[in-house]
């Protein structure tokens, strides 16, 4: 069944905290198009694990500080 992604992220806040990094700069550093960064930020596209780690490396934070996923307890309620 087709359903939207449940992965959320803090990329926008992290960009702001890193000298107001632009979407284009982030895109260039991880080797994707700016449209892909926009789609990831807006939760319209779940990136591959490799791109997710690259984004975390750019901001020098653990993966969990960039991407979040609802816990199992939340799913069952």
């Amino acid at each position: 069944m087709v359903k939207p992604t449940r992965v959320t992220n803090r990329i926008r806040a992290l960009r702001f905290a890193h000298d107001e990094m632009t979407q284009a700069e982030l895109a260039e550093r991880i080797g994707v198009t700016r449209q892909t960064v926009i789609a990831i930020e807006q939760g319209r596209y779940s990136p591959s694990l490799e791109i997710a780690f690259q984004i975390a490396h750019v901001f020098k934070v653990p993966l969990e500080e960039v991407f979040q996923y609802p816990g199992s307890q939340e799913e069952t309620t």
């Binding site: 080797g31 994707v32 198009t33 700016r34 449209q35 892909t36 789609a39 596209y45 990136p47 591959s48 791109i51």
Partner: peptide, 9 residues
């Protein structure tokens, strides 16, 4: 317009 083609494309 971006001419690049990435994993999402």
């Amino acid at each position: 317009a971006s001419r690049a083609k990435d994993v999402r494309d």
